[in-house]
Amino acid sequence: MMVIKAESLVKIYHNGVKALKGVNFEVKEGRIFAVLGPNGAGKTTLLKCMLGMIKPTDGSISVFGKTPFPDGVKNASFVPEGKNLYEWLKISKMVDIFASFAPNFSFSRFEGMAKRFSLKLDGKVGELSQGNRTKLYVSLAFAQDVNLYVLDEPTWGLDPIVRHEVLSLVKESVLEGKTVVYSSHILSEVEEVCDDLIILKEGELLYNGTLDDLKEKKKTTLSNAFLSLVKGDSL
């Protein structure tokens, strides 16, 4: 089954920046789908389109068969690039408040996550280090029992141990039948978790397929394949 389908998706911002220039792809159910690309490739823009945060200029995108803009996707949970929460709130209060508006939030799932990440719930959100803030954000997002997780750089600022936990969490979500969209600029992470991937550069798709196919066609590692694609070689 298809979870996301993008057809000739175009996004031009008000300031004239062409972030996406006609992108086509599909995300299948139960797969880990990576979005790769150098900085400014349009990764974050694409993720925002998936969640209805921004309106496509042209073309279309549908998630669970519906247009995400402007009301978002109830059955999805988003970890954006900036892991910003309400800094003035106590962490425990932040969890309660998040639970009050996040669809399908489960406290028992949250406790599981918090334990797994050895997350401490004392003090204020604003007192957390960057890494702990990311942990809290990821824990909150995964505490929602939804069918799609959209993660923009979910390991930002994390130490190798927690990073490993997050990657395991992503892999395990497949066992629950969940679909994950994962954007990162750390190729080694993506290589470890993803089934399918797209590589974007300046708003255009350079590759759209499985990781295995890419390695088999290029007969090389992901990072070499990525570099040669971004430099302009064809498959």
Partner: peptide, 16 residues
Amino acid sequence: SKKTIYLIASRMTRWQ
């Protein structure tokens, strides 16, 4: 400005 809009707008409708 604090970019917390993504936390709420991706989980509630714009009307909510």
